[in-house]
Each structure stands twice: as structure tokens, then as C-alpha cells.
Simulated assay, not measured.
Amino acid sequence: MTSPPAPAPTGSEPPRASGPAEPVGDARVTAADRALLEAARAEGGARVPDDGSVIVIHREPAGDAGELAWMPDDRNYCLAVVRDARASTICNPLPKSWARIGIRLVTEAVAYHEGPTVYFAVVDGGHAPYAYAGRGPQSPGTGPVRDATAVFASGRTLSLLTYEPPLRQILPGDREICSADNAVCFPTLDVYVPGSP
């Protein structure tokens, strides 16, 4: 029997610091992720931790592409997008307030070589897996929603998601991303970042 999801905090409650986040299950770094870590460390934009707190959101079998994240506490995040063994890294604070309950952040992180835009979302709770839902058929070329679970020492759990919607084939409002239990849904192309209305 599964327990019901924890209630979501109100939209104005600031996150509590309790880091670093620890990866859960398949999100843990393995020997096969060495190339991803090397690419992220070579990029030089942010210090990649080496204490087991790197969270693997997605890894390609060839080992030269994927997404890594780390959270020194639950107020800040870093995301490394690796393509062709080269990384692009962003580090930012999470918003202190948010437009939807349960959604901490949705932002863009552009991949190298003018590849598709990678969207990154931070969502309260561990409600994986996440997938596209909503009106109409899924657009051709829509890639999967990839997710990983991170947990803090306090017991707080976050889901970290990456996805690459084909912008030419999907219109805002046409699709949402939802958790398997439908506890959390958000529009695919919306962006919630610090300073957003």
C-alpha cells in the first residue's frame, strides 16, 4: 500500500535549506557516467561536487550525452547539459515564490551545437514517472520526459526533470507534463524563474 503524497506547501513559503541533495535509485552516479562528469568538470563554469551528491537525470548509452544536476541546499541548483562530450552549465537560486503549487522552477538550458533547447523543472515530491499529457496527440519528434529523484537529509524530496519539446510542432497550452499520479501538472512551454510574475 502506498502512502498518499505529502501536502504541497503554499505558494509563498520559502524553501528550507537542508542540503546537499542525495540522488535516489538510478539517479546515482555509476562508472558509466565518468565521461559526463569529466565534461561537466572541464566546462569550468561551476564546481562539480565529488561527494556523491551529483544527480544523473539522463544518460545516453554512448556516455557522451546526458544531464546532471546538483543542489548544495534546497535553495540553489546547478544543471549541466552534456552533448557530444561538451557541457553547458547553469547555477542559480530557486525562486522564493512560484506561480503553481508544487512547481519550484521551469527554465531553459540551451545545449551546444544549436541543438534543441533542454527544459529543466524542479518539482516538489517524488511523484515519478512524469510524461506528456493533455489535448491532442503527442507531437511527432517529442522526446521523453526524463526525471530523477533527489532527497535531502530533512526527508524533503524533489523531482528533477529534463525534456526537449519540439517548439515548431507544439503550441503553448497544447500539452502538459504530469506525474504518474496526476498530483502535479504544468504546461510544457511555461517558464517559472526567479523574478517571473
Score class of each variant (00 low, 15 high):
I103S: 02
V82K: 03
Y112M: 08
D147Q: 09
A39Q: 09
A35V: 11
L68H: 04
L158H: 10
L189Q: 12
I170F: 05
N182Q: 12
V145L: 02
A180N: 08
R86Q: 15
R146Y: 10
C178T: 04
A69E: 07
E67T: 12
E13D: 13
A32M: 13
V48L: 08
S179N: 02
G19T: 10
A109P: 06
T10N: 13
F152N: 01
T188F: 05
E43L: 01
G11L: 15
E60K: 10
S179A: 12
G102W: 02
A85T: 09
A21I: 06
V184M: 11
A148P: 03
G141L: 08
P5R: 05
A111D: 15
P9T: 07
I170K: 04
C91H: 09
A121S: 15
G115V: 03
G155N: 06
E114G: 08
A35Y: 08
A62K: 13
L160F: 13
N182K: 10
R83A: 08
S18P: 06
L167R: 14
Q169R: 14
D74V: 01
I90C: 05
P49D: 07
A69N: 05
P140Y: 12
A6P: 03
P23C: 02
P4Y: 09
A32S: 15
G141E: 10
A21Q: 08
A8W: 09
L79K: 12
R83H: 09
P20A: 02
S53I: 01
